[in-house]
Design a protein around this nucleic acid. Structure first.
Length: 492
RNA sequence: CGGGAGGUAGUUCAGCCCGGUAGAAUACCUGGUUUGGGACCAGGGGGUCGCAGGUUCGAAUCCUGUCCUCCCGACCA
């Protein structure tokens, strides 16, 4: 492993790529646009997944699993949804290979094994799920259906980046069915809140809750709610979406139910998802030029202990003490590793665990042992101090909390400092080019103006924030009247 | 999908223009000395030069095709 990664100030994109590879979160693969998630990266994803899964269960949802393949006829049923995804679908057309008669040891697609109907590899699962829900729903007594699935999806992206945009990715997709519009709307917002709660309180990444404009809306949705995060380079990243689907899919798949008065009506729907892209957000929100910085609540390892010794005798004494500490820490629920390997020297280990973003490091040497202390090093502030071994578990628990809080506060301060109002076009363009971040500006509400701004500046409307007060103003581009500021940014 | 750059030891890269026994650093293995911020000495192993064709007496090097990656553009629920 080489000794450094590209500095953020030098090349932010390269820094990100270097970091993902060197921290061993992921690797490239032999398949274009598809990555290998390595064990350390997957451990991180597992922690995120487990926390989210519990939140879903706590809000009444259950898990299920639907097929990877969607028959084309089902896929095209909801027209807007199908159109929206058509350009990035992988399609299965054959079901068999055979030996190539012209080249020994090679295989060809068997032309006689062509499928009657092509199968679309799911870019999202609304179609196959609503086709299924049709069979599950007859009356209001069958509602609501609150199902989530953890799955992979495929979107044939032209330009990919590790975690941020890959051809195949892992995610969860919730698909719910309701008797009333109101209930579906409540569900949509409830799950948006769950996402915001998770991303802020577990990942320590502050988000803005908002609604997407028509241009940015999920294909097939009535409304798309989102959480938007800000990265250290001033670009925005959509961290999660929750869609109010109205009756669009119920109509497309003919899913009706009898209400209490025995009247037939179409079912109301929502869907919501977050993906492994969140890992990209996590990396770009907190990390520095030394490597990854992980929030304790989802870090695969929260504490690493490194011994410093001369000779076997010292090592044995340190081992004995550290083993006691490890038992205590594990009892307190802390994910801890004692790296007593003799393969690397302490300095090497320090750098390695910094690259991997382990929140707290303890270093224990013979001198410390004599004095009954241990060196505590925080990854987030890179601050080191000597603490008494007595009562160290409590100190560590408090430090982990402090790190979690500091990461969030730090990211929120950066985010808050990078929401800037712009009142005219010159200001708007200038802010985008010099400062970046979110720009709060008036917009006349038309897709045409949004499109024009995008063409001129590459900035899009990230969302119409949910919690801002109405304010009279004029559109930053057209000068037409506007009633609310929206957030623009260049985005991932 | 268009334009540009790249792929040679586990890793980072030199060699390619001008064809002639495949190199460096680092990592790895063995032994020893070491260990409070990426240790040092000595010895050693490791590469069908992305893959497939072609030109040539001879190809990492020239030609063609193809795959993967990066950058720019188009696209991106």
């Amino acid at each position: 492993m080489s000794k450094a990664i590209t500095a953020r100030s030098q090349d932010y994109s390269q820094w990100y790529n270097d970091l993902v590879l060197k921290a061993e979160l992921a690797d490239y693969s032999a398949v274009r646009g598809c990555m290998v998630i390595k064990p350390y990266g997957f451990a991180l994803w597992e922690n995120m997944r487990d926390a989210l899964d519990k939140m879903f269960k706590d809000t009444g949802h259950v898990n299920a699993y639907f097929p990877l393949f969607v028959p084309k006829s089902l896929f095209e049923a909801e027209e807007k949804n199908a159109e929206g995804f058509a350009k990035e679908c992988a399609i299965v057309t054959h079901y068999r290979l055979k030996a190539d008669p012209t080249q020994k040891g090679k295989l060809i697609v068997d032309p006689e094994a062509k499928l009657e109907e092509e199968l679309v590899v799911r870019p999202t699962s609304e179609a196959i799920i609503w086709n299924t829900y049709k069979n599950w729903i007859q009356s209001y007594r069958d509602l609501p259906i609150l199902v989530n699935q953890w799955a992979n999806v495929v979107r044939w992206e032209m330009r990919t980046r590790l975690f941020l945009r890959t051809a195949e990715f892992l995610w969860q997709e919730g698909h719910t069915a309701h008797a009333t519009k109101e209930e579906a709307l409540v569900e949509t917002k409830k799950m948006l809140d769950v996402y915001a709660d998770f991303v802020e309180n577990w990942m320590a990444v502050p988000v803005i809750k908002g609604v997407k404009t028509a241009n940015e809306r999920f294909a097939g949705a009535e409304d798309t709610y989102c959480i938007e995060a800000l990265m250290q380079d001033g670009k925005a990243l959509q961290a999660g979406t929750s869609h109010f689907l109205g009756q669009n899919f119920a109509k497309a798949f003919d899913v009706k139910f009898s209400d209490k008065e025995n009247k037939l009506d179409y079912v109301w729907a929502t869907s919501w998802g977050v993906s492994t892209r969140l890992i990209g957000a996590l990396v770009m929100a907190h990390s520095d030029d030394e490597g990854l910085i992980l929030p304790p609540k989802i870090a695969p390892l929260q504490v690493v202990i490194v011994p410093i010794y001369k000779g076997e005798e010292q090592k044995a004494a340190i081992d004995a003490k550290v083993n006691e500490i490890v038992v205590q820490l594990k009892k307190a629920g802390i994910r801890v590793k004692y790296d007593d390997s003799d393969q690397a020297r302490p300095g090497w280990k320090f750098a390695e665990y910094e690259m991997k973003g382990v929140p707290l490091r303890l270093a224990l040497g013979a001198r410390d042992l004599e004095q009954g202390v241990v060196e505590l090093a925080r990854r987030d502030t890179r601050e080191k101090k000597s603490m008494p071994l007595e009562g160290i578990t409590e100190v560590i628990l408090a430090q982990l909390d402090a790190i979690q809080k500091n990461l969030f506060d730090r990211a929120r301060q950066y985010r808050d400092e990078h929401i800037t109002p712009a009142n005219n076009w010159e200001e708007f363009v200038n802010l985008l080019d010099t400062k970046g971040g979110f720009i709060a500006a008036h917009w006349d509400g038309t897709p045409e103006t949004e499109e024009a701004i995008k063409e001129k500046t590459k900035a899009t409307i990230r969302c119409i924030p949910l919690d801002t007060a109405p304010e009279q103003g004029v559109c930053v581009l057209t000068g037409k009247p506007s009633t609310q500021r929206v957030l623009f940014a260049r985005a991932y």
